[in-house]
């Protein structure tokens, strides 16, 4: 008993020291004169400024597909995925609209999105350097709450060459570029015509939709901010619903608020089919709020509980 305890204690101690040592050394590490935070900011900037054509593979919820990505300047892109069964999806951003359309005749467009991304200041660490898709690369780890991203980025351009996303310590998606060619890319405007587009709205317009003030969470995880507010059609009410999008750059949250709605799903907390999001519904007065977020259950419940 004594020996087992002794050996267990020694093993735990050594493991803790190794982990702490690795984390401390990697947190202090600089590559090419940049710290982890500076690298992440560089990668963010590259997403808005570098133009390229890339081919690679993506994996999500045990399904994989090939992808072709044309990334233009100002964050515009056109992306096509095709899996082994021929199921495909085209999605893109033309500077004003984001959209997707698949072979199952499903499509959606979000109009008037404005600037593509929220620039955030993420905490992270440098995990090392390597070569990836024929390019010198740096490996970065960014984590907020339950979501962790392991990013491999081009050391010269900052373009993301590979990314593993973990939610609650479980890998939920993966993408890696196999070939990349830096060149000018022109992304044509979205030609999709759809009646159920989401459109950006003001708080006053949102009040008109709901017939009352929007329900805002009075508590949010650190770093999470309201990025945009949209109006979306609803199948049971011609007034539609108000959609609030929150993000901290790694974790995301969408609140859909509906008035006198009877199409919302049953109240409760669920795991989305793809496993990387939590879905929860709450009704306050005549407003039903459906939240979808890549946050842990406790955070989701606290957010919904703080709605006012």
């Amino acid at each position: 008993m004594k020996r087992v305890c002794f050996l267990l204690g020694i093993a735990l101690g050594i493991t803790a020291l190794i982990v702490l040592g690795i984390r401390a050394s990697s947190a202090m590490q600089r590559v090419d004169g940049r710290s982890a935070a500076q690298w992440l900011a560089f990668v963010e900037e590259a997403g808005q400024t570098v133009s390229y054509h890339a081919v690679g593979k993506a994996w999500e919820n045990n399904k994989s597909a090939q992808f072709i990505l044309d990334q233009g300047r100002a964050g515009q892109y056109l992306l096509q995925t095709t899996d082994a069964q021929g199921k495909s999806c085209t999605m893109g951003y033309d500077g004003q609209r984001i959209w997707y359309a698949n072979k199952l005749h499903t499509s959606k467009m979000v109009a008037d999105t404005g600037p593509s991304a929220i620039l955030v200041h993420l905490a992270g660490r440098i995990a090392g350097t390597c070569r990836y898709a024929g390019r010198p690369a740096i490996r970065l780890v960014a984590q907020n709450g339950n979501t962790r991203k392991e990013i491999t980025a081009d050391r010269q351009t900052g373009v993301i060459l590979a990314m593993n996303t973990y939610f609650s310590r479980r890998r939920v998606s993966e993408m890696h570029v196999e070939q990349i060619a830096y060149r000018d890319v022109v992304v044509n405007p979205c030609s999709l015509h759809t009646d159920d587009a989401m459109t950006a709205i003001t708080p006053a317009q949102a009040r008109a939709v709901l017939g009352r003030n929007i329900l805002h969470p009075t508590w949010l995880p650190a770093g999470m901010t309201l990025a945009k507010m949209y109006h979306a059609p609803c199948c049971c009410d011609t007034r539609g619903m108000v959609v609030l999008r929150y993000s901290d750059g790694v974790s995301t949250l969408t609140l859909s608020e509906m008035r006198d709605c009877n199409c919302a799903m049953c109240a409760g907390c669920y795991q989305a089919n793809n496993g990387d999001a939590i879905v929860e519904t709450r009704t306050i007065g005549n407003i039903t709020v459906t939240a979808v977020g890549t946050l842990d259950v406790n955070a989701m419940r606290r957010i919904l509980g703080s709605l006012q």
Partner: peptide
């Protein structure tokens, strides 16, 4: 909808979102 809106984030894995939306 959440996935499509999330695709706007810099660190979004758009290719994997495409696999899901397909």
């Amino acid at each position: 909808d959440h996935a499509l809106l999330s695709s706007q984030d810099t660190f979004a894995d758009r290719a994997s979102i495409g696999v899901m939306l397909a």
